[in-house]
Amino acid sequence: MLITISNIFSPNGLESAHKRINKLEWKSGLNTAGKTAKQVKKNFQADLSQGIGAVLQSDILNALQGNAVLQAAAQPKSFSNLLISKTENGGFYGAHIDNALMNMAKGKLRTDLSFTLFLSDPNSYDGGELIVQYPGFTQTFKPEAGDLVLYPSRYIHEVTPVTRGTRLACVGWVESLIPQQDKRETLFDLINLRASLSHQFPAQSAELMTLNKTISNLLRLWAQP
């Protein structure tokens, strides 16, 4: 599943995030790149583990956890630590695959899904498109500030060179309760169907009760808490 989720951040939330981003300290993105990625990465990243960065990370995680579409699509078990990336002056992140496992304080996190939360107005910079390579085709993304692109970590992806302005984005990873992509998509379809039917049927109708039962039972079958 590869989707764009609009308005993860409200305008006020985005403004607040930018005020905190202006106070962050930046280091070479090579510090967080794997052996292969170091050869194709030219950007800067900010550590969000302490100080103003920790406050920003908490704000972003709260926005992610409070978004119903993201919760339905990703079925998150755990989120990784977050990074803010800054790309400018010809910077880029060439084609690469994200690490399958990431170190966390409580152990390893399996990267089922990756996400990029765009934080810059797309008209304020040239280049900087996120490109995801699916088998047989590619998709290119450069959405509005506050929008998030969610995509499977298993696919090759890249960020094209930024030739004007500055591209700011938050990147992170999700370990899902439902490891299998096809099963996550089935649940997502059913959850969307339930939301649509809720405008047509009473909450206690046989139709919605049956749909609720089906979603719950599939979660019991497939979830790996």
Rank of each mutant, 00 (worst) to 15 (best):
L83Y: 14
S198R: 00
E15N: 08
R167S: 03
G94A: 08
A37R: 03
W222K: 04
G127F: 10
Q39E: 15
L119S: 05
G29H: 06
T160W: 01
G53M: 09
L187T: 02
I84W: 00
L82G: 03
G66T: 14
G136Q: 04
N62I: 09
N31P: 00
S124N: 09
L30A: 12
V40T: 08
I52N: 09
T186H: 00
G13H: 01
Q57W: 01
D59S: 11
Y155K: 09
R154Q: 12
P76S: 07
R110S: 14
P161A: 05
P143K: 12
V69F: 02
Q133A: 08
N67E: 08
V132I: 15
G127D: 01
E88Y: 10
A72E: 02
Q200G: 04
S28M: 11
E144N: 12
P179Y: 07
E88N: 07
D59E: 15
Q75M: 14
K106W: 09
L150G: 03
P202G: 04
M209P: 00
P11A: 11
P76M: 06
L14Y: 02
E144R: 11
L64H: 03
S205Q: 12
I3G: 07
Y155A: 04
V149C: 02
A145E: 01
N89A: 10
V174Y: 01
L56K: 10
D112P: 08
G13M: 06
L168P: 01
T4V: 13
A37E: 04
P152G: 05
G107C: 03
I8A: 11
